[in-house]
């Protein structure tokens, strides 16, 4: 009951922040909200737009959730997402002749493995070499970004060698679209599965329990005979795998090719989504859909007003800071402490 109230309050708070932000920028709130809603849910195109944005946001945020819950501040969702896409691109060069099913299965597994590998390296640097994950993943984001800039002009470049992009996937090689007019593709079905699986793993398995425990108190975990370093490395690998998978799915289902601007900062924007979802998979799902809808809706907003998707970042910022404030207010009240 109390939890339901909290969720309700959070939802109302998010809606209020959106209204306040729009008003603060001098927009007509009613018109702006209608434009946003039209762009996000108004027709099948809007729903498709929202769905393809929710996919990378939620998958990356789930990944970050697993790592942050284990006390590993993985900021590298962006780099791991791009690495996944690049792995997909290389796998395409090898197995493109075999057919779409093999390409999709091998490609997505490869994307997840590549993201996991990169995240594992960041985790290894922390547990073995003492380099904080926060720092190393930030650096890796830049390294991967620069590598992609080179790859799409080098080994991954389209066969004609003219454009700085990888070869465009043919329609058969893309993940199928039930309605070719919309962005919706079958890869998005991975998202609900990932939400349920992450929740089950975190809350219903021993491994997931240990993952949360090592983030809360690593000394207790060690006293119980577990190795914190192993648990944290595992958390990083799962985290990277989910981010890499997101990159692979976007490559095969949405973008169809890799170029400089492949990632629209999804791995970065997923951080507030994970935080606003209270690092809980169902919360992450709700926050992911909400912000995906705002990003999709802002396409419409962009056409008719001065605002664009940047305004969504302001809403996210206000929400993150608002939650931090609310959490410390509640903690104070519970302790009966006076400020």
């Amino acid at each position: 009951m109390k939890e339901a109230l909290l969720v309700l309050a959070a939802g109302a708070g998010l809606a209020l922040l959106l209204v306040l932000t729009l008003a603060a920028f001098g927009q007509d709130v009613g018109t702006s909200l209608r434009l946003l809603a039209d762009g996000a849910f108004g027709d099948k195109y809007g729903i498709g737009r929202t769905a393809v944005r929710a996919c990378p946001l939620i998958l990356c945020a789930l990944g970050l959730t697993v790592a942050w819950r284990a006390g590993m501040y993985n900021i590298g969702g962006e780099g791991q997402y791009l690495t996944g896409a690049v792995a997909g691109g290389f796998i395409y060069q090898v197995v493109s002749g075999v057919g779409p099913v093999v390409f999709h299965v091998v490609g997505l597994l490869g994307a997840a493995a590549a993201g996991a590998g990169l995240a594992w390296f960041a985790g290894w640097l922390e547990v073995k070499r003492g380099v904080q994950v926060v720092i190393s993943t930030i650096l890796m984001n830049f390294i991967v970004l620069k590598l992609v800039e080179w790859l799409v002009r080098g080994p991954l470049q389209e066969p004609n060698g003219l454009l700085p992009t990888s070869e465009r996937l043919s329609r058969e090689m893309m993940l199928a679209r039930p309605d070719p007019q919309t962005d919706f593709h079958i890869g998005i079905w991975v998202v609900p599965i990932a939400i349920l699986a992450t929740w089950f793993w975190l809350y219903r398995t021993r491994a997931g329990f240990l993952n949360r425990a090592v983030g809360e108190n690593q000394h207790a975990v060690r006293a119980a005979g577990q190795k914190p370093a192993h648990l944290r490395l595992r958390a990083m690998m799962i985290s990277g795998a989910l981010c890499g998978l997101a990159g692979g799915i976007d490559y095969m289902g949405w973008a169809g090719q890799i170029s400089d601007g492949f990632s629209q900062e999804w791995g970065f924007i997923a951080i507030p989504v994970a935080l606003l979802g209270a690092l809980n998979p169902f919360g992450v799902a709700a926050a992911g859909v909400y912000f995906a809808a705002l990003f999709a809706g802002s396409k419409e907003l962009e056409r008719f007003s001065q605002l664009d998707s940047s305004v969504v970042l302001v809403v996210q910022a206000a929400a993150v800071l608002g939650i931090v404030w609310a959490a410390s207010w509640m903690k104070n009240r519970q302790q009966g402490g006076s400020e």
Partner: peptide, 25 residues
């Protein structure tokens, strides 16, 4: 006394989102 990394990420979003939006306006 809130989590410094969480607040820092919030501040990034605020600065990036606000400057881009005001720039457009």
């Amino acid at each position: 006394a809130a989590d410094q990394i969480v607040v820092g990420m919030g501040l990034n979003l605020l600065g990036i989102g606000l400057s881009r939006t005001l720039y457009r306006i």
